[in-house]
């Protein structure tokens, strides 16, 4: 069967993602916003699964749900002096909305004008084995992968350096 994407499953995931995103930007409580981000990440993982990208879905869960959101919540906790500080004033802004709408309009126009009207998914699919070969062989992305690992190490060092205690 999996030559098409099931419309119902997509609808559920899409609605939960858009809703979560809206919830994230509109929530007054910053901790709630972080939880909405978690919800969006998980829904995105579901979407990847729907697109037969099992491995990516897994990584998405690990990195976003497992790491990014936890880190965010952690930072929120540190930067809050009192519990009440988590609740923030509404910071709605018309210019921001206008900009976002304009950008969204452009993107929607571009997406709607995408020339290839594709409904059905092609059959051919790389197996996880082939993807591994692609990622870890010299003819594939091994070098890029190594660079990415260096980038992560540098980011780790930077994060440790910046978040150290300073006395002033």
């Amino acid at each position: 069967m999996p030559n098409t994407v099931d419309g119902i499953a997509f609808a559920i995931l899409a609605i939960s993602m858009v809703g979560g995103a809206l919830g994230m930007v509109s929530s007054r409580n910053i901790v709630h916003a972080a939880l909405w981000l978690l919800e969006v990440s998980v829904a995105a993982a579901g979407l990847y699964y729907l697109l037969d990208a099992d491995f990516i879905a897994l990584v998405q869960l690990l990195v976003y749900a497992g790491a990014v959101v936890v880190l965010t919540v952690f930072t929120v906790m540190i930067t809050l002096r009192r519990r009440e500080d988590a609740v923030r004033p509404v910071d709605f802004s018309w210019p921001a909305l206008l900009l976002a709408l304009a950008l969204g309009g452009i993107l929607l126009a571009a997406a709607a004008n995408f020339p290839k009207k594709t409904i059905s998914m092609p059959d051919a699919m790389p197996s996880i084995v082939r993807f591994g070969e692609l990622l870890f062989t010299a003819r594939g992305y091994a070098l890029a992968f190594e660079i990415a690992s260096v980038l992560l190490t540098v980011a780790l060092l930077a994060a440790v350096w910046w978040s150290r205690e300073v006395e002033d």
């Binding site: 969204g104 929607l108 995408f114 009207k117």
Partner: peptide
């Protein structure tokens, strides 16, 4: 059945 356009539209909305 949904195609590529649906995903593009969703991602445009999320991006905005």
């Amino acid at each position: 059945r949904v195609g590529l356009e649906a995903f593009l539209l969703l991602s445009a909305v999320l991006f905005s």
